[in-house]
Structure formats: C-alpha cells, structure tokens
C-alpha cells in the first residue's frame, strides 16, 4: 500500500465509496469496504503531506560528482 501513487490511492478510495453507495453489500462487506476506504483516504493524505518544501539545485563538484544544495530564489532575484 505504501508504494501506491496518490492517483491509485484516490482511485481506490473512490471505488470504496461507490461500492458502499451501491448498497448491495452485506454488513460485513460494508464494514470492510469502509475500513479500506478509510485506509486509502489516509494514504491520500499521506501522499499530500509527504511533500516537504524542498527546492534544490544540482551542483557539479569535482570529478563529476553531483551535490544538491538548497536553492534560494531570493538570492538570485
């Protein structure tokens, strides 16, 4: 579940909602579907929250070795 993309998680969440809305599930299935839906929505939130503010610039150090440093827009402005 953890290497699923946001889009896939969102699709799963949507599926859960639709199945539950369909109303033909028995109680066990409905509870299970709900639980899964909650899991997927948690995944979605996770994916959205995961991104930390991080803008970096690649610098070529000696010997073609790449390093990444924070890129500050204001300095260059």
């Amino acid at each position: 579940m953890s290497n699923v993309s946001f889009e896939q998680a969102l699709k799963k969440l949507e599926d859960s909602v639709r199945r539950l809305e369909d109303g033909s599930l028995d109680l066990e299935e409905a509870l299970q579907t709900f639980e899964e839906g909650i899991q997927w929505s948690r995944q979605c939130h996770l994916r959205l929250a995961e991104a930390e503010k991080k803008v970096e610039v690649l610098l070529k150090a000696d010997r073609e070795e790449l390093i990444q440093v924070a890129f500050n827009l204001d300095e260059d402005a």
């Binding site: 969440l13 949507e14 109303g23 839906g37």
Partner: peptide, 20 residues
C-alpha cells in the same frame, strides 16, 4: 485534492451510516 479526499471520506462515513 485535499477537498476531494475529504469529500470521499465524508461520503464513506455517510454511506456506512446508511448501511447501519
């Protein structure tokens, strides 16, 4: 996206309530 996920989650809860 957050709104979308929230909306789905709300629907999940409501539909489960309906079932119950």
């Amino acid at each position: 996206l957050l709104t979308l996920v929230q909306d789905f989650r709300l629907r999940l809860s409501q539909r489960l309530d309906d079932h119950l």
